[in-house]
Each structure stands twice: as C-alpha cells, then as structure tokens.
Amino acid sequence: MKNISFLKLDLLRELGSIGAGHAATSLSELANTQVDMSVPEIRLYPSQRIMDRLKDEEYFVLRSRLEGGISGMGYLVLSLGEARPLAGLLLGADPASVDMDGDMAQSALKEAANILLSSYMSALGDLTGFTVLADVPAMDGPINKNDVEKHISDAPADDIVYVKSNLTIKRLGFDAALLFVPDQKSLRAIFAKLGLPE
C-alpha cells in the first residue's frame, strides 16, 4: 500500500469524514451537547506517526475489532483530562468527583467508544454495501503518552493505513481521536467496491 494514489487517499478521507460525522452525531445525542469533528487525516504507519501533538498526560486507548465485510480495528484515544469530563457528562456527575478507576466510569467510556465506533461503521456499511460490526470495546489505560503509539500499532511488514478524525466538545476542552484501521484485504475490497481497483 506504499503507492496509494491521491484519489484513493481522497476517498479514504471522505469515508472518514462520513464515518466521523455519524459518530459525532451519536456522541452529541449521548452527551446532549454539541460535538464538532476535524477533517480526517490519513497516516501511513510506520513511515508516518499515527498520533502527534499528544498532551503531557496519561491516556486511555479503547479498541474494538471490526468484523464482517470490512475487517480491521477501530480506536478511540483520549487523555485522562478528556476522559474525566466526558465520564462526568455521561454519568451526570461533577467530573472532579468521578472515580476514573471505578467500574461505572470505565463502563461509560467503553460504551461511548462502542456507540461511536458502531455509528462510524454503520455509515461505512451504508456507503460501501458491506456489513461491518464493531466488537465489544476493550480498554487500556491510563498509559503514558509515549506508549500510546505502540498500543494502536502492530508491527506491519507493509504500511498500514490509519484514517484519523478528531471529535471535539469545545466547552469541555474535549478533543479525542477516532481511528479507523482497515486491514489490507478490506482496503482493497473498499477501493474495488467504490470503483478504484488496483
């Protein structure tokens, strides 16, 4: 996938935009607040870094295996400083009082990831005609910011394509990364299905 064309990159950005748009709508309904999204970026790992501009904080990485017509991984990456106000909002509690190691806060974050990734994949499914299912999310963290990259990457023989979007809630200072990582076979299937074969 080293010679991915501009047209294919553009298509992936568009897929990311539609997927993240649906995810933002779902988060907005869940948290009952306005959620904005960034223009998606495509990162080819390991020749490019996946995450940059990480804050000097600990992070949570929520990951979900994607299965069905498109397989791969989906990730929600957010710092402790972003997770706390989100958990507070979802639980209807003062963020300062939320026990981030507690079962309820962790369950709320996992469910937020589940809903975001399922919404994202639903949009991709509608667009491509593939059925895509996001498995129950698992959660790592809090982890050091220097370890985030290795938590969201394997050791690929070839470049792996990461479609990265950011979801923001301005009033909370919330800015989480949502990553769609199709495997190579699925990537080829997506391009073929949408008229851009090898």
Binding site: S26, I115, S118, S119, S122, A123, T131, V132, L133, A134
Partner: peptide
C-alpha cells in the same frame, strides 16, 4: 443494538 447491526 448500536447503529450498524441491522443484520443481527
């Protein structure tokens, strides 16, 4: 269900 689980 979450969104996208039509088949299920």
């Amino acid at each position: 269900s979450a969104m996208g689980q039509h088949a299920l």
